[in-house]
């Protein structure tokens, strides 16, 4: 029983990896970027857990900067993905421009909040 579940899991991972390999490169870049942002956020959370939340606004701004970027990147990924029929008419360049603008606004607020 246990053997079969691990095998199933292996089979599942395998199929996932092979399915992901067919994803276009630009989406992979975005995924990588989201992963990078989320990991950075995680490290900050760990730091806070170890040290304490004294400059709380700094912690919040750092964390929200990462999460916000990740969310924006996810949004970009949704818009850029060709599979999504919903955004068929939207040019990826336009989506990227939105992403850049949102990032700039987000970081203006973050910088203001950083103290």
């Amino acid at each position: 029983m246990a053997k079969s579940t691990s095998k199933d899991a292996q089979a599942l991972f395998h199929s996932l990896r092979s399915a992901y390999a067919s994803t276009p490169t630009n989406l992979k870049i975005i995924d990588l970027y989201v992963g990078f942002a989320v990991f950075t956020a995680l490290i900050q959370v760990v730091y806070m857990a170890v040290v304490g939340s004294f400059p709380f606004n700094s912690f919040l701004s750092g964390l929200l900067s990462c999460i916000g970027t990740a969310v924006l990147a996810v949004c970009l990924r949704i818009q850029v993905n060709k599979e999504n029929k919903e955004f068929k008419d939207l040019a990826p360049e336009r989506a990227f421009a939105d992403f850049v603008l949102c990032n700039l606004v987000l970081h203006l607020v973050i910088m203001n909040f950083l103290g």
């Binding site: 870049i29 992963g35 990078f36 990991f39 950075t40 490290i43 900050q44 730091y47 170890v50």
Partner: peptide, 26 residues
């Protein structure tokens, strides 16, 4: 030292990001 160590740690995902980019073949 602890803070500096975590500064280094936050750079790690960035490095990982670059490595990932290279592997994808950007």
């Amino acid at each position: 030292e602890l803070s500096l160590a975590f500064l280094g740690l936050t750079l790690l995902p960035f490095v990982g990001f670059f490595i990932g980019l290279l592997r994808i073949g950007v």
